Amino acid sequence: MSSGTTELAWFKSSYSGSEGDSCVEIAIAEQAVHVRDSKDVSRPAFAVGRDGWGRFVRFVEQASAQL
């Protein structure tokens, strides 16, 4: 993980609600999507390749369509 994650533009899902204290935040970079805990941003973030993130999002969309 690079030390440059603090310069990333972090955002939360619109589903996180007004409290916003129980969510993850993501930041989209050229080569990866970075993920961190919104409750404790001092903890290390992790990065997922953009292809892997796309597969994850498609899986979640398909799974939630079945609910």
Rank of each mutant, 00 (worst) to 15 (best):
S38G: 00
R43S: 07
L8M: 13
V35S: 07
S22W: 04
I26F: 06
A27N: 12
D37W: 01
H34P: 11
V33F: 01
S64E: 06
R50L: 04
S22Q: 08
A65Q: 14
Q31E: 13
A32L: 03
A27S: 06
R58K: 11
S2H: 04
V60K: 06
S42N: 08
F56K: 11
G54E: 13
E25Q: 04
V24G: 03
G17D: 08
L67Q: 05
E25Y: 00
G49M: 02
E61K: 14
F59E: 13
A47P: 09
V24T: 00
W53F: 13
D40R: 15
G17K: 05
S2Q: 14
F46S: 05
W10N: 05
A65H: 04
G20A: 02
L8P: 08
W53K: 10
V57G: 11
E30L: 04
D21R: 11
V57S: 14
E19H: 08
E25K: 01
A45R: 12
S42C: 07
R55E: 14
R50M: 04
G20E: 02
D40S: 14
I26A: 07
V60I: 11
L8Q: 03
A29H: 09
S16T: 04
E61R: 14
E25D: 12
E7C: 11
A32M: 10
A27M: 02
A45Y: 06
W10M: 12
V41F: 05
R36W: 01
R43N: 02
V35M: 05
A65R: 11
Q31F: 05
F46K: 09
A65I: 03
H34E: 02
V35F: 09
V33T: 11
E61A: 13
G4L: 01
T5Q: 07
A9S: 14
A65E: 14
R43C: 03
D51F: 01
G20K: 02
A27K: 02
I28K: 13
S13F: 02
R43D: 00
A32Y: 06
S3L: 12
A32H: 13
E25P: 04
K12Y: 00
I26N: 00
G17S: 10
R50F: 00
S3Q: 13
I28S: 14
L67D: 15
E7W: 04
A65T: 04
G20S: 07
E19I: 01
S14I: 03
V33W: 00
G49L: 08
R58A: 15
V41P: 15
L67I: 02
S3G: 11
H34C: 12
R55K: 15
A29T: 08
G54W: 08
V57I: 12
E19F: 11
S22I: 00
S16E: 05
D21G: 12
G49V: 02
P44Y: 01
L8E: 07
T6K: 12
D51T: 07
A45Q: 13
R50Q: 09
T5Y: 10
V60N: 05
H34T: 10
L67P: 08
E30G: 09
R36Q: 08
F46R: 09
Q62K: 09
R58Y: 10
A45P: 13
A9Q: 14
L8K: 09
C23D: 06
W10C: 10
D37S: 03
S2Y: 15
S42F: 07
S14P: 11
W10E: 10
S64F: 05
V33E: 01
V33N: 07
S18W: 02
E30I: 00
